Computed example of a mutant assay.
Amino acid sequence: MADYKDIIRKPETLGWFKAAMAMKITRDCLLDIVKQATHELYDKIRKVIKIKDGIQEDVVCSQCNTPKVLPCDANNKCCNYGTCEFHTIHKQQSCPKANLCNAICREIVANHRFRNRSKKQSFKGPTWVNTDACKWCNDPWQIAKCYLSKEGYTDVNLAEDIDFNGIVYVIYNCEFFQAYLKDNLDRSRNVCTKARDVGREVRHAPSNSMTSQESDRAIDTLVALLQNLKHVNHQFAAKTAVDMLTQKNKTES
Score class of each variant (00 low, 15 high):
residue 66 T to G: 05
residue 126 P to C: 02
residue 138 N to H: 12
residue 140 P to K: 12
residue 63 Q to W: 10
residue 130 N to I: 01
residue 116 N to V: 06
residue 110 A to Y: 09
residue 113 R to V: 10
residue 121 Q to N: 14
residue 139 D to L: 03
residue 116 N to K: 07
residue 142 Q to C: 04
residue 134 C to W: 03
residue 109 V to G: 05
residue 144 A to F: 05
residue 72 C to M: 07
residue 86 F to P: 08
residue 114 F to L: 05
residue 116 N to W: 02
residue 141 W to Y: 08
residue 144 A to G: 11
residue 58 D to K: 11
residue 81 Y to L: 15
residue 138 N to T: 12
residue 65 N to C: 07
residue 57 E to L: 05
residue 69 V to G: 01
residue 136 W to Y: 00
residue 92 Q to M: 14
residue 95 C to E: 09
residue 145 K to R: 15
residue 145 K to P: 02
residue 113 R to E: 11
residue 70 L to G: 00
residue 137 C to S: 12
residue 86 F to R: 00
residue 72 C to T: 04
residue 118 S to T: 15
residue 102 N to P: 06
residue 59 V to D: 13
residue 82 G to S: 08
residue 119 K to C: 13
residue 151 E to N: 15
residue 122 S to P: 14
residue 145 K to A: 01
residue 80 N to V: 14
residue 127 T to E: 11
residue 150 K to Q: 12
residue 146 C to Q: 06
residue 117 R to W: 05
residue 109 V to A: 10
residue 139 D to A: 07
residue 132 D to L: 00
residue 130 N to Q: 04
residue 69 V to Q: 01
residue 117 R to N: 10
residue 128 W to R: 04
residue 91 K to E: 00
residue 59 V to R: 14
residue 83 T to K: 10
residue 134 C to R: 08
residue 128 W to F: 00
residue 90 H to V: 05
residue 136 W to H: 04
residue 123 F to G: 11
residue 95 C to A: 11
residue 129 V to P: 07
residue 128 W to Y: 03
residue 82 G to L: 07
residue 107 E to A: 05
residue 58 D to S: 13
residue 95 C to H: 10
residue 145 K to M: 06
residue 58 D to T: 14
residue 117 R to P: 04
residue 137 C to P: 05
residue 70 L to P: 00
residue 83 T to G: 07
residue 96 P to I: 06
residue 87 H to Y: 01
residue 115 R to W: 10
residue 123 F to C: 14
residue 148 L to D: 01
residue 144 A to K: 02
residue 81 Y to E: 15
residue 97 K to G: 05
residue 107 E to R: 10
residue 108 I to H: 00
residue 149 S to V: 11
residue 91 K to L: 03
residue 127 T to Q: 11
residue 117 R to T: 12
residue 138 N to F: 12
residue 71 P to D: 04
residue 146 C to P: 10
residue 150 K to R: 15
residue 143 I to W: 04
residue 74 A to K: 14
residue 151 E to K: 13
residue 92 Q to N: 09
residue 77 K to G: 09
residue 151 E to I: 14
residue 112 H to T: 11
residue 90 H to L: 05
residue 142 Q to V: 00
residue 69 V to I: 11
residue 125 G to T: 12
residue 99 N to A: 13
residue 100 L to K: 08
residue 105 C to F: 06
residue 57 E to N: 13
residue 148 L to W: 03
residue 70 L to C: 01
residue 65 N to L: 03
residue 110 A to V: 05
residue 68 K to T: 06
residue 120 K to G: 15
residue 62 S to V: 07
residue 113 R to I: 12
